[in-house]
């Protein structure tokens, strides 16, 4: 089962959170931009993990949910004149509905077929947005406002404050999702991922749980979209494209799915790596590609899985008790 306060997971999450806060407080302008982008991807990758890590449903369509969140928020504020406080919940809800619909349509597909079905829906949404003059078509929508929190003494138009807020939002998502996954709902999702047939035989509604997880994953990804729209103050159809979904997928898998903290780690590593390498070569794609290959060679369960295995080995060596077997091992089951 998934334990929110597993020591290793919690230590890594605190480490990442601490690094994020430190960076938000001390980083230069560029670092703040990268940090906010990392938060967007971290939230989207956690949403992805909800499906991939627990129910073994690897989606190539999370751009659809991120894009829906971003466009509903941008559309309601820029075109509809609504205040951000009303538009943001509506955007999250809208992305949740998108998740629900995609979840319903793909409920019978598995594995690569699920991946391709989500890709299909994402691409159809991409074409739709690209061809909607009302949504700005290829050029997107500009002038997207950030929420006004001046009543609380918080100025989100300041880059540093915004980056800090983005990190806090990602942490909040981590805690909420972790809480949920540690519940009976999370255990059922894990069971579906392990053996869908057996869960069905137990009389548990597999379809119901899968659709609910998709809706939730969509809503969380939609929140990432709202954050992206607020960060750039601009939205463009690229959010819907499969290459964006592929980025989310890559980050989550590199970091290690099923751990919730792995995707955050993956997002941070890939975003940092991309900008760092792009600073010295236009061929950064090759470095990123080799990094992906290396990440797989390190073990199929991502960097978090690698760390968890190393931690287990270390513990065994430190406590060579009689028999040496440690049945109760939190990280092992994640």
């Amino acid at each position: 089962m998934f334990r929110l306060f597993d020591p290793l997971r919690t230590a890594l999450a605190l480490l990442l959170f601490g690094a994020g806060v430190l960076r938000a407080l001390t980083g230069d302008v560029f670092a703040l931009e990268i940090l906010a982008e990392t938060a967007v991807f971290a939230i989207a990758a956690m949403a992805f993990d909800l499906l991939a890590g627990f129910s073994r449903l690897v989606s190539m369509g999370h751009g659809l949910f991120v894009g829906t969140g971003a466009y509903v928020y941008a559309g309601l504020t820029v075109l509809g004149g609504l205040p951000p406080a009303a538009a943001a919940p509506a955007a999250v809800l809208g992305a949740g509905v998108a998740g629900l619909l995609v979840g319903l349509a793909t409920v019978r597909t598995r594995d690569v077929f699920f991946l391709m079905a989500t890709l299909a829906f994402g691409q159809m949404a991409h074409v739709f947005v690209l061809r909607s003059p009302a949504l700005g078509g290829d050029d997107g929508l500009t002038g997207v406002p950030r929420p006004d929190l001046s009543a609380l003494g918080v100025d989100l138009s300041d880059g540093r404050t915004f980056a800090l807020a983005a990190v806090l939002l990602a942490a909040l998502v981590y805690l909420l999702l972790g809480r949920l996954l540690a519940s009976a709902f999370g255990r059922t999702l894990l069971a579906i991922g392990a053996d869908e047939g057996r869960v069905r035989a137990l009389g548990i509604g597999v379809a119901r749980h899968r659709v609910a997880a998709a809706a939730l994953s969509g809503a969380v990804a939609g929140l990432a979209g709202v954050l992206a729209a607020c960060h750039a103050m601009y939205v463009s159809p690229g959010l819907f494209h499969w290459t964006f979904s592929g980025e989310v997928l890559t980050m989550a898998l590199v970091g290690g799915v099923g751990s919730l903290v792995g995707p955050v780690l993956g997002a941070a590593l890939v975003v940092e790596l991309k900008y760092a390498v792009a600073a010295w070569t236009a061929h950064w794609g090759a470095v990123l590609g080799l990094f992906l290959v290396a990440a797989v060679w390190a073990g199929g369960d991502g960097i978090y899985g690698r760390i968890a295995r190393a931690a287990r080995a270390l513990r065994r060596r430190l406590r060579p008790g009689p028999g040496g077997a440690h049945v109760r091992d939190g990280a092992g089951s994640a």
Binding site: F30, E33, G159, A232
Partner: peptide
């Protein structure tokens, strides 16, 4: 700075050049 063909990347790079 490499803008790729991605508007958000272009914006980040522009902010870097101007503010930093």
């Amino acid at each position: 700075e490499d803008t790729e063909v991605k508007p958000p990347v272009g914006l980040v790079k522009t902010k870097k050049l101007v503010l930093q």
